[in-house]
Amino acid sequence: MSAELSQPRVSQLGEFITPNHLFFVRDHFVDRPVLSDDEWRLYLEGIGVEYTTISLDHLRSLPSKTLTVTLECAGNGGYGRGADRHQHHMRSMVGTAVWRGVPVATLFENAIPPEVTEFVFRGYDGGEDPDEPVPIDCYTRSIPRAKVLDGDTLLVYEMNGEPLPREHGFPVRLVVPGWYGMDSVKWLRSIEARTTPLGHFYDDHKYRAQSTDAGLQAGRRVREMGVKSLVLSPSNGQRLLFGDIPISGLAWAGENDVTSVDISFDGGRTWQPTELGHEARPYSWRTWSLTRKVDEVGPLDFVVRAVDSEGRSQPMDAQPVRTYEANWVQHVRVFVVAGLEA
């Protein structure tokens, strides 16, 4: 059995806000929970927490917050199991939506004792994982206290002004802005405050930096998104008429702002700045564009590099064992021609 995964074509990501039906889907198990508004409950428990059950009506009655957030699959563009080691096996597992929900901090009313260091979020989904011989009761992620209680980590029930679709976690999911998508637990069931690590499969054996097919648990936990850019147009291998060639795409940097996106037409020796669209802000991507005048026919190669507000920039070279956090520059080759066939 395999987890559900669907993604749009890169060319479909041209809108600043990704429509719900085009937003990528990544599930860890085959079966998705089927929950109704009336039966869904969220359970709060743990150190310093009086056991509490939250209904959807109660959650919706609390003061809400709306954030525009880009979510990206941690494996977007990496080398997953069975992937061609010389090609990115996917690039479009990323999207931006307007999310509405209640800050997690609101539910705890600042009553969490200082010894609590992390919160464990569990979903209603469970099943089999190819790397774990024992069936998993529920998808689980642990998130540090500071990130959970910072006011922007939300219990979301609306996506782009509509009730959260089932494939995106209806009726309630977690959204952790600036962190890779696996931390934004879908079909949320419970939140537990803890003073010690829980020790579970999806923290200890999956989503580890430099994880490879040969060895899990190979490094630190994967969490914060890196700085990254994506070329939307033209596509790799496209034939284009010589003259003015528009190039455009998107760039994002997790919790940081994207401050520049540059293009090199000589393999990274020199760089030209692109024009950035939309304001710089954390959590969501920015559009960028540049027009290149080309007077000769033949192949045209370029690479794109984004830089963020902390000075982080994309590496030039791919890391051939990296499964997660792949953010090296994108190489594109197009073919400039004198005329296009009808």
Score class of each variant (00 low, 15 high):
residue 2 S to W: 05
residue 2 S to R: 13
residue 3 A to P: 07
residue 14 G to M: 05
residue 14 G to P: 03
residue 16 F to H: 15
residue 16 F to S: 11
residue 17 I to L: 15
residue 18 T to A: 04
residue 19 P to V: 08
residue 24 F to L: 02
residue 30 V to M: 13
residue 34 V to P: 01
residue 39 E to K: 11
residue 46 G to E: 05
residue 51 Y to N: 14
residue 53 T to D: 05
residue 54 I to V: 15
residue 65 K to L: 15
residue 66 T to N: 06
residue 69 V to T: 07
residue 69 V to A: 08
residue 70 T to D: 12
residue 70 T to M: 13
residue 70 T to H: 13
residue 74 A to P: 00
residue 76 N to L: 08
residue 83 A to F: 01
residue 93 M to I: 01
residue 93 M to F: 12
residue 98 V to E: 14
residue 105 A to V: 12
residue 107 L to F: 11
residue 108 F to I: 11
residue 109 E to T: 15
residue 113 P to M: 08
residue 115 E to T: 07
residue 116 V to R: 08
residue 120 V to C: 05
residue 136 I to G: 01
residue 140 T to M: 02
residue 153 T to G: 04
residue 157 Y to M: 01
residue 167 E to N: 11
residue 173 R to E: 00
residue 174 L to V: 09
residue 177 P to I: 12
residue 181 G to P: 08
residue 182 M to K: 09
residue 185 V to R: 02
residue 188 L to A: 06
residue 190 S to Y: 05
residue 196 T to I: 01
residue 198 L to M: 06
residue 201 F to H: 11
residue 214 A to D: 10
residue 216 L to Q: 09
residue 221 R to F: 08
residue 222 V to W: 10
residue 224 E to D: 15
residue 238 Q to K: 14
residue 238 Q to T: 02
residue 242 F to N: 05
residue 243 G to W: 02
residue 243 G to N: 03
residue 245 I to Q: 12
residue 246 P to R: 12
residue 248 S to W: 04
residue 250 L to D: 00
residue 254 G to S: 09
residue 255 E to D: 10
residue 255 E to G: 05
residue 262 D to M: 09
residue 270 T to P: 14
residue 279 E to Y: 12
residue 282 P to V: 13
residue 282 P to I: 11
residue 283 Y to W: 15
residue 285 W to A: 09
residue 303 V to L: 03
residue 304 V to W: 01
residue 307 V to F: 03
residue 310 E to Y: 12
residue 311 G to S: 12
residue 321 V to Q: 13
residue 323 T to L: 14
residue 324 Y to T: 02
residue 325 E to D: 14
residue 326 A to N: 11
residue 329 V to D: 01
residue 329 V to P: 00
